[in-house]
Structures are given as structure tokens and as C-alpha cells.
Design a protein around this nucleic acid. Structure first.
Lengths: 111, 111
DNA sequence: AACATTAATCGTACATTTGCGATATACTCT
DNA sequence: AGAGTATATCGCAAATGTACGATTAATGTT
């Protein structure tokens, strides 16, 4: 049996990175963010037109991105407009850049 | 009802990024990679000593990282030595850098 | 007031992930 | 040969993720 050592908890960095990674762990959600990077904003219906999934499924993926903090929605009935949450996007960018040890120049740039 | 449009499939970039992101979607796996970046190599037992999880669970997380291509193992009985798979690490790094639009310098650097 | 529009949520089915203890494997050492 | 060591794999239970159709909610339009 192994000696009883002080076991290590996961760091905040590890937990936050994993949380963001989880949000990116489905192609649909990556595609939504790719789309939002190009278009700056979109409505749920735009994605339903483009992608081969049911409206309810797409809505669910949007919800996950929202809960992970990567996007935000502005209700404008009957539509909801989504865009990237820039603060958390920058945070995720920084976490991944640090993780991959990438030299990064534009992490502090504004939109 | 919405008009019947040509629905878009996910790009290879989106699928590959999602695959890597899935591998990074658990703090334990992020922690293993963090450890490997510092230590360059490790044995399964090192991780069992450090992290508060059962040996079988840690072995399973290692397996997932291996199957995602991010690490590779060299059997050296009774131990197995793991290290980062540099080719796929670079690939992942590039995918995430592109995704986040980060300027990166050292993507072409060697080990 | 009835209808149309857009999107979220519900309920359900199925698949995958996570964690653990127990067991199997493949050696080395005595 | 038998014991010890390190790790992978199995079998299971619980939790979570994925996808869909149906329903609900909130509004504007006729």
C-alpha cells in the first residue's frame, strides 16, 4: 500500500479550464461560437436554419454555452439575440493560452 | 415552417477541436497534462500518490488522454512511463489558438 | 379575442462518463 | 515455483449528456 501522503486538490485554474473545455466538447457548440465570432451576433433561428439539429436541441446547446459563461443573450421578444460574453471569452482565452504555453500578444485587446 | 435549406455539417476543425476539448473537460485530466508539462514524464503511480482518486480511476483518465492522442505511454514493466504526444499537442495548440484568434509565436517550435 | 412567431422548457429514451473495488496481466526478485 | 510490484481492465452503479417531439411562454398582428 502506498504511504499516506497529502493528496492534492485540483487548482482553480484546472477546474475553470475543464469547465470551459466541457462547454467546447461538442462540435455544435464549437460551431455556434465560430459563427458568433464571424457574425458578432445571432438569433436562435439563424442556427436552426443552418445546422441539422432540432430547434430544442440547439436551444439546449445554447443554454450550455450560456451557463458556461461563454455567450450571453438579450431577450427581444419574440427573438433572443446572442453574442459572445467578451469578459469570459477573454478569460477562457487566457486559460487556454497559459495551458498551452502559447506566447500571446492580443490577450488584452478590446473587441 | 422554415424553408428547406442546405444544412451544414460540422467542419473537421470543429470536430477535432471538440474532441480535444472533451479530453480536457475533466480537472483530473487537465491536472495530468499540467503535471506532464512540468515533469516531462511520469508513471501512473506518481499520479496515484498525488491525486485523491483510486488507481483504477486515474488509469481510466490516462486512457482517455491516450485515446485522444494527447499523451503516449511506453511500457517498461512493471511500470509505464507517460509523456505528452508532441505532434498532437502541437495540433491541439494550433486548433485552440486559431479558435481563440490568439497570435502565437511558438507553435512551430520543437520540443 | 384568435392567430402567428420565436424560443425556452418538459418529458422521455438512450448513450456516455465517472468512480470504485476486484481481478487479471506481465513482468521481476527471492 | 511463489511472492511482490505496477498497471490495465472488468463489472457495476450512479450521474450526466444528447437528441427529439410536444408543450408552454411571451409577445406582436389581424
Amino acid at each position: 500500500m502506498r504511504a499516506t501522503k497529502e493528496k492534492v486538490q485540483f487548482t482553480q485554474q484546472e477546474q475553470e479550464l475543464a469547465r470551459f473545455a466541457k462547454a467546447l466538447s461538442h462540435p455544435m457548440r464549437v460551431a455556434i461560437l465560430n459563427y458568433l465570432e464571424k457574425q458578432l451576433q445571432c438569433y436562435t433561428g439563424d442556427l436552426v436554419d443552418i445546422f441539422p439539429m432540432a430547434q430544442s436541441t440547439i436551444s439546449q446547446h445554447i443554454k450550455e454555452l450560456k451557463e458556461a459563461g461563454l455567450i450571453q443573450g438579450e431577450i427581444n421578444l419574440p427573438k433572443t439575440r446572442y453574442c459572445v460574453n467578451q469578459d469570459n471569452w477573454k478569460k477562457a482565452k487566457r486559460l487556454f493560452a497559459d495551458f498551452f504555453n502559447v506566447d500571446f500578444k492580443n490577450l488584452t485587446c478590446e473587441i
